[in-house]
């Protein structure tokens, strides 16, 4: 009987000692990390385009932190989803087509002779990348434009085009070497091959 009592007492003492240590450690060594919202926001492309259904990147970051899906950002594309999955330690899922498709990077271009100077696009631009005044021609500051196409819709005369960024020697990227597909069929390629055969 006494041995049981001793065991209980010992366990209780141990539990309280460790509890105190853990409690102390929790207070003493608290990590003041970046709030998760900031970290998520840092991974988003900051186009502020609202394609995710939120009024900007920060609100979407907040929504992700609150448990929303991570695949609602078309401008960021798969690489952003992968980065988010990595940060949040969840599975990377394909982009939700409902919110748009991943498109090549574009910039807005105003056909200046058609611009009537209504300033509607200026008000729509989330990053102040359009220059102009009322009844004056507007123009896009290319280096600041995020390609969100929020300015296209409000334009009453439809004079804004989203044009893909031109490839110049300065921003040209080396392509990955292509391996002969007949030599190295990846498992993914093989699956497609089999699917193709069955259809």
């Amino acid at each position: 009987m006494s041995s049981i009592l001793i065991a209980i007492v010992v366990l209780l003492v141990l539990a309280s000692v460790f509890g105190i240590i853990l409690g102390f450690a929790a207070v003493r060594f608290r990590v003041e990390g970046d709030p998760i919202v900031e970290q998520i926001d840092a991974l988003l492309p900051q186009t502020q385009c609202g394609q995710c259904g939120y009024p900007g990147c920060k609100p979407y970051a907040q929504a992700i932190a609150d448990g929303d899906a991570i695949n609602k950002c078309p401008p960021g594309g798969q690489s952003t989803i992968d980065a988010l999955a990595d940060l949040l330690d969840v599975d990377a899922i394909p982009l939700d087509a409902e919110h748009g498709e991943e498109k090549p990077k574009t910039v807005a271009y105003i056909r200046e002779d058609e611009c009537i100077g209504c300033t509607k696009c200026i008000q729509a631009c989330p990053v102040d990348a359009i220059l102009g005044a009322a009844k004056q021609m507007h123009t896009v500051i290319v280096s600041e434009c995020t390609g969100c196409d929020l300015c296209v819709e409000p334009c009453p005369v439809d004079c804004i085009d989203m044009i893909p960024l031109p490839v110049t020697p300065a921003n040209w990227k080396w392509p990955a070497p292509v391996s002969d597909p007949s030599l190295i069929l990846t498992d993914r390629g093989r699956g497609q091959l089999l699917q193709g055969a069955s259809q």
């Binding site: 007949s182 030599l183 190295i184 069929l185 093989r190 091959l193």
Partner: peptide, 9 residues
């Protein structure tokens, strides 16, 4: 079985 080029490999 792995659908690789026999002659090459």
């Amino acid at each position: 079985l792995r659908q690789r080029s026999l002659r090459f490999f």
